[in-house]
């Protein structure tokens, strides 16, 4: 193949650049990570009792009322996160295919970069978990038998969470999902140093530390919930 045919083949279609797609992955990935950090912080309220947890959930449903309608803040978050999710997933698919094509017939084998290599698969597992998680604790469709939806003046998030994680399979799903999230986040956050163009030696070291601290903090904080439920502490 000559270089001219290669060029015309790639530029004839409207094409979002790899450069832009990688930046979009990094920005939306950070958005999820920051959301997950705040979410984890909220989850820790379970350790301060059912009232603290439910009170926080109730507040979330009514935050900024009457400036926003009820559930207004939640809907803003849902829309922003849903758009980010679509961008993140579509960009990852395009990049995955571009990488395979640029590599060609002979795959690279024999490296041990499993965290980087499994990003598409840990990502898909997280997507599956997210679907289950929303069906479980937001909609109650896959929730425990005792699931109760929030009312205008009360939330049962604590009871729902404890009941859900009390089911061995659901509890295991939460546990496993957090380990998958750990791997995805550690590599994703570290990799974003490349997309944000961080070249300094100290900056990159600090970035790596931030990636590990954030990823471990989010997963360990969340993991205390299923473990708390299983040990009867929650």
């Amino acid at each position: 193949m000559t270089s001219t045919t290669l060029r015309s083949a790639t530029t004839s279609r409207a094409r979002v650049s790899t450069f832009t797609l990688k930046l979009a992955m990094a920005v939306t990935g950070w958005l999820f990570a920051l959301f997950a950090a705040v979410h984890m912080y909220g989850n820790l309220k379970a350790w301060f009792g059912a009232d603290a947890y439910n009170g926080y959930a109730h507040w979330l449903h009514n935050a900024l009322y009457p400036l926003l309608p009820r559930d207004g803040l939640l809907w803003i978050m849902r829309i922003v996160l849903a758009v980010a999710l679509v961008v993140h997933v579509v960009a990852s698919l395009v990049l995955y295919l571009r990488g395979r094509r640029a590599r060609g017939r002979f795959r690279r084998r024999g490296h041990n970069r499993w965290a980087a290599a499994t990003m598409p698969w840990t990502g898909l597992l997280l997507l599956a978990f997210l679907t289950f998680h929303i069906l479980d604790l937001t909609l109650g469709i896959a929730g425990a038998a005792e699931y109760r939806a929030a009312t205008a003046d009360e939330s049962f998030a604590y009871q729902n969470t404890v009941a859900s994680m009390g089911r061995p399979l659901a509890g295991a799903a939460y546990l496993l999902a957090m380990l998958v999230l750990l791997v995805h986040l550690v590599h994703g956050l570290w990799s974003s140093a490349t997309e944000f163009g961080l070249t300094g030696r100290r900056t990159r070291k600090a970035w790596k530390v931030i990636a590990y601290v954030l990823a471990i903090g989010i997963t360990v904080g969340n993991l205390t919930l299923p473990i708390g439920v299983w040990t009867g502490l929650l």
Binding site: S17, L95, R101, A102, A116
Partner: peptide, 9 residues
């Protein structure tokens, strides 16, 4: 963009 793949670190 034209000739090589994306960097996944």
């Amino acid at each position: 963009e034209q000739r090589f793949g994306p960097c996944s670190t």
